[in-house]
Design a protein around this nucleic acid. Structure first.
Length: 282
DNA sequence: CGCCAGGTGGCCC
DNA sequence: GGGCCACATGGC
């Protein structure tokens, strides 16, 4: 087993935050299927023990180069974020393969994490070269994807694969807006999915994907539960959270989806919900 | 049975 | 810009 210094990292929080789907618990660690191989990883304090792929791949995938202290220092100025940041300390935004990330989040539309996981694992098993997810050139036809129960997403996936042939996604670069605009040319990719891919695959940490959970959290925490358009939320998030908005999004998503406990000291979810929704504290 | 789920695309005003 | 609908499938 090899090791890597991994301070300010939580393997579990990172994997369980719903960014990546092809992993499973294995004994005291996790088995993670990547393009480069099957990675087994477990955490021992600040040390990440791993085998299966090389250390550079591990460090890159888990984004161990992200400056977590700086990110937290900046975001913790917002009192609404402190509880979630503390609770999910060490959660990192991954650096995923763009095509797999694109396929996974096209699949995510009107779905849920268990089902997305099933769909993505199915696609890998059916069309990929294990453990690698299928390249765009290997993806199935719309019909074959419908057979895997992808539903209306099957057409999007097969057509997106055609557009992504020849390494088109490897050539995407530039600021968030241009990456997002290029991604939205693909069928099945609107603003939300484009921001997910920009964040989870292209390291655009200022991306702020707004899904049903984040929308609910943002409305409650910053808009007095009023009805607000996603455009307004995005604008607000950009101003409020700045260059690390993506990290704010991911802890808000995770907190809202699991437990909904924003309090820094871990009160019962029902109570903290009440506290968080109240305009004033106490 | 009916409703809703990590949304998007098409069409309306 | 915003509102409404269909889109497959699965879980409750």
């Amino acid at each position: 087993m090899e090791t890597l210094a991994a301070p300010r990292f939580s393997l579990q929080s990172t994997l369980e935050s719903g960014q990546y789907f092809r992993w499973t618990r294995r004994g005291d660690g996790f088995e993670i299927h990547l393009r480069q191989g099957v990675l087994f990883a477990r955490q021992n304090g600040d040390v990440l023990e791993f085998e299966g792929v090389d250390g550079a791949t591990v460090g890159r995938f888990f984004a161990l180069d992200h400056d977590l202290p700086a990110i937290h220092a900046e975001l913790e100025r917002d009192p609404h974020l402190r509880g979630a940041l503390r609770r999910y300390r060490g959660l990192r935004i991954l650096r995923q393969d763009p095509w797999e990330c694109m396929a996974a989040f096209i699949t995510s539309a009107v779905s849920n994490i268990p089902r997305i996981t099933r769909n993505v694992v199915d696609m890998a098993a059916r069309f990929g070269t294990p453990p690698a997810f299928p390249r765009p050139e290997q993806m199935g036809s719309e019909r074959e994807l419908r057979d895997l129960k992808l539903g209306f997403r099957a057409r999007y996936l097969s057509q997106a694969a055609l557009l992504a042939r020849g390494g088109a996604l490897d050539r995407l670069d530039g600021p968030l807006e241009s990456v997002r605009q290029a991604l939205m040319e693909y069928p099945g990719i609107g603003m939300k999915v484009a921001e997910c891919i920009a964040l989870f695959a292209y390291g655009r940490l200022d991306a702020f994907p707004i899904d049903t959970w984040v929308r609910k959290a943002m409305r409650r925490l910053y808009f007095r539960n009023r009805r607000v358009s996603d455009g307004k939320i995005r604008e607000f998030a950009a101003r409020r959270f700045g260059r690390y908005a993506g990290y704010a999004q991911q802890v808000l998503f995770t907190a809202e989806r699991t437990g909904r406990d924003y309090s820094p000291d871990g009160r019962p979810a029902s109570l903290s919900l009440t506290l968080a929704s109240a305009p004033s504290r106490r």
